Simulated scan of single mutants.
Amino acid sequence: MTSQEKKKIKEKIESDIATLLKQIKTLEEKAEPITPDCSLGRLTRLEAMGEQHVNNKILDESRLRLTRLKNALLRIDKPMFGICIECEEEIGFGRLSIRPESVRCVECANAQS
């Protein structure tokens, strides 16, 4: 991987981290518990609880991705960055451009699923 490609990936990581931090803040507000004394109808209350569950799931996934992106940022200058942890082949620049936190190439990621 060239230094120019690493620079683009680093910019992508930093951009994704900033976006996720904003998203997490918004989701934390939406995922606050619904108080029992809230004046909602029964169905509306159930809908709000369902929406809260979805928001909590997205929040968990966003936090996990944020951790992975921060780890990728720490690894980016190391020689093993961009090398698959399974087959030890280079992870394609296209994959890292989309998911810079990837630690497996497409083939190994598909085999693991």
Results as ranks from 00 to 15, higher is better:
residue 6 K to F: 00
residue 71 N to K: 12
residue 2 T to D: 15
residue 65 R to L: 13
residue 6 K to W: 00
residue 38 C to Q: 12
residue 20 L to R: 03
residue 51 E to M: 10
residue 14 E to I: 05
residue 32 E to M: 14
residue 3 S to F: 06
residue 51 E to N: 13
residue 15 S to G: 06
residue 26 T to A: 15
residue 88 E to N: 09
residue 1 M to W: 04
residue 18 A to I: 01
residue 3 S to T: 14
residue 106 V to R: 04
residue 16 D to S: 07
residue 67 T to W: 05
residue 7 K to Y: 10
residue 57 K to D: 08
residue 30 K to A: 05
residue 14 E to Y: 02
residue 58 I to V: 15
residue 91 I to L: 04
residue 108 C to R: 01
residue 46 L to I: 11
residue 51 E to P: 01
residue 85 I to Y: 02
residue 58 I to E: 10
residue 88 E to P: 02
residue 27 L to F: 09
residue 51 E to D: 10
residue 20 L to P: 03
residue 101 E to A: 00
residue 29 E to G: 10
residue 24 I to T: 07
residue 76 I to L: 06
residue 84 C to D: 00
residue 39 S to P: 03
residue 80 M to Q: 14
residue 2 T to G: 15
residue 80 M to N: 13
residue 74 L to R: 03
residue 18 A to S: 11
residue 41 G to A: 14
residue 66 L to T: 06
residue 22 K to E: 15
residue 42 R to M: 10
residue 55 N to Q: 07
residue 78 K to S: 12
residue 18 A to N: 06
residue 70 K to N: 12
residue 67 T to N: 13
residue 7 K to W: 05
residue 16 D to G: 00
residue 96 L to N: 01
residue 40 L to Q: 03
residue 4 Q to G: 09
residue 63 R to S: 06
residue 10 K to V: 02
residue 26 T to Q: 14
residue 11 E to V: 01
residue 66 L to Q: 10
residue 27 L to M: 12
residue 13 I to E: 00
residue 45 R to P: 12
residue 85 I to S: 11
residue 9 I to G: 00
residue 113 S to E: 14
residue 69 L to E: 01
residue 50 G to S: 15
residue 107 E to F: 03
residue 21 L to C: 07
residue 41 G to C: 07
residue 9 I to R: 00
residue 25 K to G: 07
residue 75 R to S: 11
